[in-house]
């Protein structure tokens, strides 16, 4: 679990993680905002289905892959949050079609 050091009167914005409104600080990456809200799992692996979460936070490990605004397999640690952003977790194995 992670907490914010600064609990000042700064403006927060809202993103939606699997539909749930989640507050984020402007300047957060999607991964940081998810960790701050207590979500440490981002996806399930394509092979065993095990839950994985952010590991390196610098764009190297590709563990934090999520779907953002309908675009799949994006690195949550590399993308800054925007107001109203929609994020889906649980990538699992990609499928054709649906």
């Amino acid at each position: 679990m992670f907490r914010r050091l600064n609990k000042g009167p700064e403006r927060l914005l809202t993103i939606f993680v699997d539909g749930a409104p989640t507050s984020a600080r402007p300047g957060d990456s999607v991964a940081a905002a998810m960790l701050a809200s207590g979500r440490i799992g981002c996806r399930t692996t394509a092979v065993s289905g095990a839950v994985r979460g952010p590991f390196c936070l610098m764009g190297v490990c590709f563990e934090c892959l999520v779907t953002i605004e309908g675009v799949a397999s994006l690195q949550a640690c590399m993308i800054p949050v925007r107001e109203g952003m929609r994020i889906e977790t649980k990538c699992g194995n990609r499928t054709f079609g649906t």
């Binding site: 679990m1 992670f2 914010r4 050091l5 300047g27 990456s29 940081a32 905002a33 960790l35 640690c77």
Partner: peptide
């Protein structure tokens, strides 16, 4: 990185 960029620290 979480500390530097978002002032996030572990809890628990």
């Amino acid at each position: 990185i979480l500390l530097k960029s978002s002032a996030l620290v572990p809890e628990g």
